[in-house]
Nucleic acid binder design. Structure first.
Lengths: 194, 194
DNA sequence: GACGACCTACCTACTAGTAGGTATGAACAG
DNA sequence: CTGTTCATACCTACTAGTAGGTAGGTCGTC
């Protein structure tokens, strides 16, 4: 499954973790080169420009996210469990500091200084995630697994915002637990039974 | 009240708006110099280093925030109205694009690459805001103006996270309205009557 | 004349990106 | 089985421009 990771893969993986730490202007080609063990210029061979690199990086991130969502859909029949699993995924990422922030959420905060093609990718992720959450909430309401007032769309946006805000707070306080403090009651409130 | 704005004030004001656009690494001394109309080096006369500048900038931001909160406390007796006014303040900032993001929320996302003294200021803002919201929620519950399950502290953290997440979504979608879509139901849910 | 505010001129380190060369290996013709 | 061709991947060496920061000087005001 996980093929022999190529240099291009390593560059993307390294750039992603650097991006998660400090955003678009928070890392340089030199930083990547140092970690991957190649020369600065060699990165340009794989990705002509920085915006190419970041755009590709997000595209891959979105693929992984969609695969993760598909996995969630297969693994859990109950919509409340799907939401719980989604939140739990991020809880783990934040706790073990492996990837303690959503790439697109971080980039969204810097949209005014981002290249246009990167903005498009970020926006698409938000739309995709929001659409999935909306579908989960709709299904949950229909099947009596979830309850909420207002539209599923509005509740989905609120849910997504809460999760992103919880990531931000965890980072601000330097305390992974705060993510759970914020998201747990949110799940409790949505689930019909617990 | 608003004295004759000094160069130092102008530098801070300019740096703040640049910071709001692209974060700590999203602007340079040259950017500020261009707008304020002085030379690059002259900024160093007022603020020896970039971290000094940003630290001072946040300190002032926090002063203004605390003054704003004090004003809210004086203007509205009802705790639900205070929360509404707080949210409404940000709604306006986002809608007219004057300052469409909380300085500290933006910086929080970049904490791993921020100077230590800046991190401290950011963290303090989160604590201050959370403490105020907690006090509003406690008072609201006591006086029957607000209702929620769980502790006031947890609800305050959730409230703050929702507002920050809503700012992020507004920026991601490029649509100020989404801020209201997320925050309105939140206020409705907390207020005992509407 | 001391001080604050600002300047010119400069520094070193680093930014993304380019030009052109080299090693490696696969494809293919003889 | 060899020699040629070609592309990939990487290299060294370089560019123009920008980053934050410094040294030392000028000028006006108290």
């Amino acid at each position: 499954m996980a093929g022999p990771s190529t240099t291009s893969d390593e560059i993307l993986r390294c750039a992603r973790s650097l991006l998660i730490e400090g955003g678009y202007n928070g890392f340089s080609y030199a930083d990547i080169a140092k970690v991957v063990g190649i020369r600065n210029a060699s990165i340009h061979h794989h990705f002509p420009s920085k915006s190419d690199l970041v755009r590709t990086l997000i595209a891959r991130y979105r693929e992984e996210a969609e695969a993760g969502i598909a996995h969630l859909e297969r693994q859990f029949a109950n919509s409340a469990d799907q939401l719980r699993a989604y939140v739990s995924y991020w809880q783990t990422c934040i706790a073990d500091a492996s990837a303690p922030f959503c790439v697109c959420a971080l980039l969204a905060s810097q949209i005014p200084v981002l290249p246009a093609e990167v903005i498009l990718e970020v926006r698409t992720h938000f739309r995709t995630l929001s659409a999935w959450l909306t579908s989960v909430l709709e299904r949950g309401a229909r099947q009596g697994e979830l309850r909420f007032t207002g539209t599923a769309k509005a509740e989905a946006e609120a849910f997504m915002a809460s999760v992103h805000g919880a990531m931000l707070s965890a980072r601000a306080y330097g305390d992974p637990k705060i993510f759970g403090v914020i998201t747990h009651p949110l799940l409790e409130r949505l689930a019909t039974r617990h």
